[in-house]
Structure formats: structure tokens, C-alpha cells
Design a protein around this nucleic acid. Structure first.
Lengths: 231, 231
DNA sequence: CGATAACTTGAATGCCGTCAACAGAAGTGG
DNA sequence: CCACTTCTGTTGACGGCATTCAAGTTATCG
């Protein structure tokens, strides 16, 4: 999965592919809502999502949660943060997940290979671009656009790692998760999604989303995949 | 200014200080609202703000602007982005600015010095943390909190580069700029700021802000400087 | 001194949040 | 296998915060 993602930027030499595959092997299972690392902790390992979805989030005193990033299979949660001495946010699973705890040494091993290093840089910059786009979403787009935009993004990112089958993909986030990612409430999210379903844009059933009208969804969300810098 | 900022992370050897000071020397003057680099362009140089304030922003089709980051003196605008082949956002001045266009070679020169390299990494990670905090602001905090939080942040960041005199600092952003940074309208911003003034928390006159009651402002904005990772 | 931009204020509208009640699914234990 | 609980999803009524619209004032600059 990681190999596939990194090759989204450009092909890797065979030896590099093997190295990455080896380092990303294994992992442990976690149920939904388990913290992988908590705010205030000192980061030791780097974490890679192999299957399932996870998130970066912060809690504020009113008790509500803001999700800052959604991680899909192949994503590193905290590749770059280990320079700082404590986490200023937490990382948690959203669904059942397989997570690899990768020692820093493994990261340095990867960084020694120029092709991998470049791909990791690319992945990091795309993560930032995604964060910026989320800010635009939340700051300036109404709920309907916001939700459609996020769904488009996840659709494209899932495609990039080969997890879309036809027009549908595995999707187990709750509507509350989506709300927390977009600065909305679960109620608003529900109303918009019901609307999208009535309009025949989406289908959502047994832990799957089918995008029946990708073009329509894209138009509603004013989505362009430019910021994902796919090649 | 840049030296001062980088030493916020830890002291630099004398030779490093000189190198940084030399590379950050000079610069050109720009009036407010001039694009430094525009979405779609291919980034060549790296840009350093020496004086004034600038921003990273995106325009959406409805014509409105979302400011993604505010740059103060000593900040790099795009230290890391030059790997990607085109900008997915623009960078523009907000006030009169002095900007240094630094060739990539200068960046590589700095990265060869371990102490500078580490400080640059630190600065980059703090920039990301600021972006995340902005997302929390916009996603989950009401206008009054949001604005107070941003003002606290700017206050602390200005302090870190020695630009706060007593409790006041040079501040030439328009209320519309603040609105665009926080996903609000200029009208709401105005109403909140008038309120803060009536409450004696702030004073704003001839291009300066004085924070009369820093503790109160901090309390209103639920501000903690933790995420700025100052040492 | 005129023109433009920024700030200020009030009134009305509307989107989304809050509250509340219920339905359906999934998992637990008797 | 069936009560029971819990979590998620669904829907409607109401209210509030921020937006929109509009008008007027103050700064700023040539």
C-alpha cells in the first residue's frame, strides 16, 4: 500500500520497493477510537496506517473535537513531527486499523535512498496541501459544498491507493467523524447526505459509499484535484 | 530578524549567525497587496519576509479569499514548497514589505550547517502547527474567541522576533484581512474588536495595537502558546 | 480638497446549531 | 434466541450567531 502510494509520485527502483515493503510489513490491529499517540506525549516511533482510517485531532475545553487530518491506508501520521519534543495534538483510529510502529531508524534508512526520500517529501507536501484545502473548506464553503468536497477528496485519494472498486469504496466513518473534520454537527452532515442521496449523487449502505454521479459531486463541491499534485 | 527567529529554537554558532545574516541581507520593497508568487506559477526562489506582513491565500470562485497563513518578519513563505512543480496557492503582501528573494542554492548552503538546518526544520514544523491551530479556530470557536486567539498568537510571535514594545506593536492589517484569515466577514470582525475595545482589553490606533489586558485576551481566546513550541 | 479605502453601526435574513424524540443496527449477556 | 443496551442515523421545531445589505463616518493620500 505504501509502495503504491509513493509510486504515485514516480516509479521506484526494484530494490527501493522491496525495502519499503519490508519496513511497512506487519503491524498491529487496533479497534476504532483508540489513541495511537496522545497530546503531550513524546513521539518515539513513526506510525503508518496499513488498513482502516485514522485521524489527527485536537480537543478543546468545550469538549468538542476538531479533526485536522484523515489518514488512509499508506499514510504516515507523523513522519515529520518527531523533531519536536512533545505532541501538540493526538492521533487516533477512526475504524478498525492495522498500524505499523516504525522506529526512526527505519525512516532514516528510507531517506538514504534518493527516490524514496523524494517521494516521502512529496507525500509530506501533499499532506500540507490537503490541510490547507480543508481550511478553505471550513472557512469559506457552505455545508453542502464542504461535505461534497471532502467526499471527492477521499474518493480520489482512495483511488490513488487502489481502494476504489468501480465507483464505490469501503467507508466506515460516522457522520459525527465527518462533522468533526469539517467544523459542522452530525445533524447538518446527516441532512446534507440525505439530500445527496435523494438527488441520486451518492449511495451509502453497509459500510460503503458509491459515488453514482462523480461529476455532479465534483461540481457541488467545487472540487479540483490540483492540490493533490498527482502525476 | 531571521537570526533572531532561528535562535528562538536554540543558539547558533557565530559563523552560522553571520551566514544567515548575509543571506538574508538586502531585499526589495513592495507595496500592500502585491503578489509575491501566484497560484499556478513554478516556484524558483524562496521568499523571506524582512519587514511588514504577508500571507498565503487562495481565492475561490465566489471571489472570496481565504488566508491560510500570516507571515511576520523573519518568516519564510515557501521554504519547502519548491519540490512541487507548481504553486497550488498564492503569496501576497498585506502591508508594505521588504522581501528577500533567496535562490535555492542559498537554502542548501544553510542546510549544510547542522544548527541552521535544525532550526529551519523547527520553524517549518511550527508553521504547520500554526496552520492546525487556525483550523481549530475556524472549525470550532465562535468569532470572539477566534479573533482573540489570533491576536494572541500574533502578539506572541511578534514578541519572539522582538517587535513588541511594552504591550503594543505595529499592526497594519485591515479588518478584512483578519476576516479572510478567520473565515468571517469584516463586519463581524469590526463588531468583536469594538467590543474588545469597550471592555478595555485592546487599544487600536494609528497602525498599532496595544494589548492592555494580555491575560484577559488570552482567557477570551482560550490561547495557550504550547503549539508554538517556543523554548 | 476631492476621492478612495477602511471603519462603524443598525436592521433584517438565513444557515447552521441546539434540543428532542425516534428508528435502526450491532453487540452483549441471560 | 431473545431482552437489553448502546451507538449511529434520521427528522422536525426553534433559536442564535454571523452574514448580508445599506448608510454614514473617519482616515488616508494624491
Amino acid at each position: 500500500m505504501l509502495v503504491r502510494k509513493l509510486e504515485g509520485f514516480g516509479p521506484l527502483p526494484e530494490a527501493d520497493r522491496k525495502l519499503v515493503a519490508r519496513l511497512a510489513d506487519g503491524g498491529r490491529q487496533l479497534p476504532p477510537r483508540s489513541d495511537i499517540i496522545t497530546e503531550g506525549q513524546n513521539p518515539e516511533n513513526v506510525h503508518l496506517i496499513v488498513s482502516g482510517m485514522a485521524c489527527r485531532y485536537k480537543l478543546i475545553d468545550s469538549g468538542c473535537r476538531q479533526i485536522l487530518a484523515i489518514f488512509l491506508p499508506g499514510d504516515f501520521c507523523d513522519l515529520h513531527v518527531f523533531i519536536l519534543d512533545h505532541m501538540d495534538h493526538s492521533i487516533s483510529t477512526l475504524t478498525d486499523c492495522t498500524v505499523v510502529d516504525m522506529p526512526r531508524s527505519a525512516v532514516f534508512q528510507m531517506l538514504e535512498r534518493p527516490a524514496i526520500a523524494k517521494a516521502l517529501w512529496w507525500a509530506t507536501l501533499v499532506d500540507e496541501a490537503v490541510l490547507r484545502e480543508r481550511l478553505v473548506d471550513i472557512g469559506r464553503r457552505p455545508a453542502r459544498e464542504r461535505i461534497s468536497h471532502l467526499l471527492c477528496e477521499i474518493y480520489v485519494r482512495m483511488q490513488a491507493v487502489g481502494l476504489v472498486d468501480g465507483q464505490s469504496f469501503d467507508f466506515r466513518l460516522t457522520q459525527t467523524d465527518i462533522a468533526d473534520a469539517l467544523g459542522l454537527t452530525n445533524v447538518s452532515v446527516n441532512k446534507v447526505i440525505m439530500e445527496l442521496r435523494r438527488d441520486g449523487v451518492l449511495e451509502a449502505s453497509n459500510a460503503h459509499i458509491s459515488v453514482l454521479k462523480p461529476d455532479a459531486l465534483q461540481a457541488i463541491g467545487k472540487f479540483s484535484d490540483d492540490y493533490l499534485h498527482l502525476t
